[in-house]
């Protein structure tokens, strides 16, 4: 009855590589068409904005509201960003709005001349970095998949092709997933692009299935690094401390995580009962260390 989303084995306790590069976020809100979509788009933009602020500074987040998202404005911004973006930096671009496709050209609807698929390609190609994520929640967004695909670039699109022209629900679920712990499948308190996509894709499927209707949209994801591209941190960021005892405990935790990873990798060579027993034993050790860490953080005043 229900299609089980693939649960990627990204929970190997290796955190996404967010500490090594700066994250730049650009959110573009398109024209609403009808007022009900306007409200939805505003809520999605707000959710993505809030999510981005958990991972990067405000001055690396640029939000284009529908009234200032003119083509020239947007292109000018990306041009200036290309001059400042580092090669190792991450770039996440979010398009929230309506799209169209006339069998030749995709357009994202903004005031004045629309942003075309060609514009998007040029924007992304002109960036000095390769670690790029484009999330396009608009109708017909799938029309840009082939032209935008590139090594290192990740695409999350609300439709699988330009033929799916109805207003989508994907954006609503994608945005809501950024604050829903249910999207954090591996419970590491980071929601990656992969996790957000899987969450939203499942919600879209359930929506149509529960109503007994044919799905008018099929979300699509390209690129194999989406499991390492963080979109939001849930809860507080880990604090740095020079407390020696705490540092020792954190080292113990890291060692235990490595032990658990190794155990999981060698799972096929063990019986089920043996694996379960050893896994739970390692988990108990980890749980005790985590408990000790929390206690130590309280003692040194890091829990506030």
């Amino acid at each position: 009855m229900k299609i089980v989303s693939a649960i990627w084995p990204v929970c190997l306790a290796i955190l996404p590589a967010l500490a090594l590069a700066e994250l730049h976020v650009v959110i573009i809100e398109g024209l609403e068409g009808e007022s009900r979509y306007g409200e939805q788009f505003r809520e999605q933009v707000a959710a993505i904005d809030i999510a981005a602020r958990t991972l990067t500074d405000n001055d690396r987040i640029r939000v284009f509201r529908s009234n200032d998202a003119g083509r020239d404005n947007v292109l000018r911004y990306f041009e200036s960003l290309s001059a400042t973006l580092g090669e190792d930096d991450q770039l996440a671009v979010f398009l929230i709005g309506h799209g169209s496709f006339d069998d030749h050209e995709y357009k994202f609807n903004i005031p004045g001349p629309d942003l075309t698929g060609e514009d998007l390609l040029n924007i992304l190609n002109n960036m000095p970095n390769s670690n790029q994520l484009l999330v396009n929640t608009s109708s017909a967004s799938g029309a840009t998949a082939d032209m935008l695909q590139q090594e290192g670039r990740m695409l999350i699109l609300a439709t699988r092709s330009g033929v799916e022209r109805h207003a989508t629900r994907f954006g609503v679920y994608f945005a809501s997933g950024l604050s829903d712990p249910a999207a954090d499948v591996d419970k590491n308190r980071i929601i990656t692009a992969l996790e957000a996509f899987n969450y939203a894709e499942r919600r879209v499927e359930d929506f149509f299935e529960r109503r007994g209707s044919l799905a008018t949209e099929h979300p699509r994801m390209e690129g194999d690094q989406t499991g390492r591209f963080s979109l939001v941190r849930l809860g507080l960021a880990p604090t740095v401390s020079d407390d020696e005892k705490l540092s020792d405990l954190v080292a113990d935790r890291n060692a235990l995580n490595a032990r658990i990873d190794e155990l999981r990798l060698s799972r096929e060579r063990m019986s089920t009962d043996d694996y379960q027993a050893r896994f739970l034993e390692a988990m108990l050790d980890l749980a005790r260390v985590e408990e000790a860490i929390e206690e130590r953080e309280r003692e040194v005043g890091l829990d506030e």
């Binding site: 929970c11 306790a13 591996d186 419970k187 995580n257 896994f279 739970l280 980890l286 749980a287 408990e291």
Partner: peptide
């Protein structure tokens, strides 16, 4: 409870509430 906790932690070893319950159970 223990068998089911195994399943939870197998999916998400870093899941603190499940870890705490495992400790409490033990």
């Amino acid at each position: 409870a223990r068998d089911t906790l195994f399943l939870a932690l197998d999916v998400a070893p870093g899941f603190r509430p499940a870890q705490r319950l495992l400790l409490e159970l033990t």
